[in-house]
Design a protein around this nucleic acid. Structure first.
Lengths: 196, 196, 196, 196
DNA sequence: AATGAATGAGCGTTCATTCAT
DNA sequence: AATGAATGAACGCTCATTCAT
């Protein structure tokens, strides 16, 4: 990677960081290109040297953040899969998600994704794929634990995976609106569903 | 109410119906006053004769729709509380919510409420109150059923109420993004949580 | 026509007059909406209350000016057709066109039409129709004079009509670039072609 | 000319070729520096290494194309001046011009020159000079043929030269707008004017 | 000679809002 | 109550031009 590319990458990254923050704070529509570039210390023109339009930066941020999240969950699982204690594994995964949802910025951005999904088809496609990914990861983990007889659910693991994702999303939304809602309580519910 | 007021009320109501539809379809930001008034067969000026600004109509719609929803749930409970069979009561409530979430327009609008809650403080206040209301309604019903020994939950009823709301929201979001997600499955989960 | 429409028509007309002048002076691309509205004493927004976009005002001006021109030529012919002297008729028509081409603004605007015709299909269609119209008007007049044995051309009247239009356009362009070119001389040429 | 200069000249020439094409296709205003450099396989910076600004390349292209055209006409005349038959001379010259005007790109570019002449004084000066040049070349040829009694015009040769240029321009414009106009017909008219 | 990141001014367009009628 | 002309600020985007490399 030459100097030009390096500088370009740095600028893009800076703009994406600022945009991420602003999209979360003010929403996609209410965030202007000017807001983004000024926040990153550039002028409007610089934005269009790196992104074709506003939608593109939104989608790129979404892609990157979702990929990162997916990988981190995956890693968290891999590391803990050797642990003999199922509770530890489950706890580690869910605690990870918990931390994430406690990050207000991420939640706002996530809701922005969902809110715009019906208007921007590409977002819908991506989000659907992401949901599928999460559910598969969770189902696989549950299957593994089930085989190891470490969980004892009364509900099929694929339905459980969907339910767990829903519970996270649901608590996420409630907490986003009303911070007095305790996110930790969802862990209890999930444990109960898992029969542990 | 005289003729003038009646006409005024009718105009407002028409505009709110159109606005509800448009906010759900295109989002709050992307919907213009012109879209609303043209859709209702009026011109821009008429809008400002009835609403002070765009935010106001959004909040009024939210108020009315949420109140309506709340009352309908309340009614559904009241009617069914006398039924000897707990399953029937639960089913009737949840089926009501199910129908609602299967109404795409309502879901879109609901997500619009949530997405705008961090930007418009009044929305946050209202949404928080609404969540509280729902949870109280659900908790009271659960307590009633618990006393009647018709449900057998392992989790306190207030936590359960929060969980049930979260599950509805969560499935709602997933279904909004990916229509292949079956909303009916959430009922299974909730039944399991209730020990029935 | 009510007061609203009257005011609207006045504003549109004012804007079209200013736009006509500016398009001729600076060309279509180089003329901004701001130039037009400021010149007419309005703000940018007012423009879009009356025209859908920049192209529309250009096309409307073209339509109106061309229609007017066509009618005036037509009138000029009708009035003079009764005259016994063919020279008078011819002179009156060509003098009319002469006057027009001596109006720099009109010529500039006309060249703008032509220059943009390959890029804006609607302009091409309109211009083609206008050329047809002119040629028919001229051919009909020539045929009339031919029947009356007042002209004695060696070339078919339809070819002559095309040639006459070409000569007007050609002198027009030369004069537009170099004002020392005498437009009057083209009348001589045309007279010669007509055998008078 | 050393290697550096050679390369430079080649780059300039490439850019001018691409620019010529683009100016003709999209017009001067609508053609961006980026369009030109990308089309020539370079980047923006390279443009400014060879031209001071956009106007400069336009003027250079105009200069070169017009010079070329002038020389080719001149050559065409010189070669044919010895021919005993006047018709051949005339035909060769006009056929050359005919071919040129049938080249759509050239016509578009030519109209761009004319349309921009009132905005860019340098273009006006150049175009005026070019018109003068053409007219002198044509007049001289006509005078030569007149002396040789090979043409028999009823109109002074200088007026005829102007008329011939006008006829070419006029048919050019008509054909540019409406391709069904036959350019060949203008030759008939000119022959008639020349009394041959 | 050539790259390409960045500027900055400007453009066409939209839209919430105001107000005379 | 309703119209619709007009405002004015903002927005997404383009582009000629500059300049460090």
């Amino acid at each position: 990677m030459n100097k030009h590319q390096l500088k370009s990458e740095k600028t893009k990254s800076l703009m994406k960081d600022v945009a991420y923050k602003l999209f979360a704070e003010k929403g996609y529509s209410a965030t202007s290109i000017d807001d983004i570039t000024k926040g990153a210390g550039y002028t409007k023109g610089a934005f269009y040297a790196h992104f074709n339009n506003k939608e593109e930066i939104f989608l790129q941020i979404m892609d990157e953040r979702m990929l990162l999240l997916h990988q981190q969950i995956q890693d968290s699982i891999t590391i803990n899969l050797e642990s003999t204690n199922s509770k530890e594994l489950i706890l580690s995964i869910f605690n990870y998600l918990l931390e994430l949802t406690q990050n207000e910025m991420w939640t706002s951005m996530y809701i922005e994704f969902v809110a715009n999904s019906s208007r921007i088809p590409e977002i819908q496609t991506k989000l659907t794929a992401i949901y599928q990914g999460w559910k598969i990861v969770i189902k696989n983990s549950l299957d593994y634990l089930l085989n190891a007889k470490q969980i004892n659910p009364k509900i099929p693991t694929d339905s459980l995976a969907t339910a767990i994702v829903a519970i996270f999303d649901g608590y996420n939304i409630q907490h986003h609106v009303d911070h007095s809602v305790e996110l930790k309580k969802q862990i209890e519910i999930i444990h109960y569903l898992l029969g542990i």
